[in-house]
Amino acid sequence: MIEIVGASRWYGQVIGINDVTCSIPTGLTALLGQNGAGKSTLIKLITGQLKPTTGAVSVFGRNPFACSEVLQNIGYCPETDSFYEEMTGRQFVSLMARLSRVPINDLASAVQYALEQVQMVERADTVIASYSKGMRQRIKVAQAIVHDPKLLILDEPLNGLDPLGRRQLMSLMKDYANKGRAIVVSSHILYEVEQMTQHILLLHRGRLLAKGDIREIRALIDQHPHRIRLETENARKIGPRILELDSVLAVQYDRRDPRVLELETAAPEEFYSQLGDLVLAADQEVSHLSSPDNNLESVFGYLVQG
């Protein structure tokens, strides 16, 4: 559906993306990268808002730049708020539907469907100025889906949404992908992306660092020692027992907080499966468990070094 071949985009001396080659099929694809990685630039190339400095981008087999026929089949939800505050949500979605060439006779029903999908029917007739961040996000998504595009591009769509809103939007995206449409979702939060899809494109400093199944990247991460942070009643009591486990390579106590210890493991899955029994045997309550390595920065660190 989307083919990108050797695409680079420079803003003067600043690089947006650098020699990116990939294809994006139907289904849900996540564009993962830290802030400034080039996600938004790639999205703007796909939505025809920018021309690549070198290379080529094709959507539905055509160059999307200023091409109405291609843009008619794309739904785009930008990261930033992009609307008139004095319009109501319904007016805004209607205007966007008109611009997307939805016939006037079908306009009201198409807008109503879109608003239903994002759970905004009740607040649709109040002005956007009164909307919360989450409501604005929903209206932006509604305008992107109102004309039933074949390709839906959502730039950080979960920003500002409450947990329920996130779940509803993820469910909407999955339903949409299951209908054979393509969805590209950008995010800088690994955890969020894992809940949505397995297929990712990983961008770092304008370069495509990895693409494919997120589980493979996870496996790659797991080849490196993995740090896990535990908060218990008494870290020194449970520490020796943890160190006895074959999967654990090292244990380190926190000098400032006697309840906290940090361990290093080469087999996190094995450690997690053993942790329950260990906690019961030590009769220690674990109040907090986290992995400092389980974030995007670590993924990039591993991929760049490894």
Partner: peptide, 19 residues
Amino acid sequence: LSYRNYDGPKSVRGPRWWP
């Protein structure tokens, strides 16, 4: 809550600048 989207035609008469 299943996704029911607009699937009609996407061309209207009249200029594109009018909206």
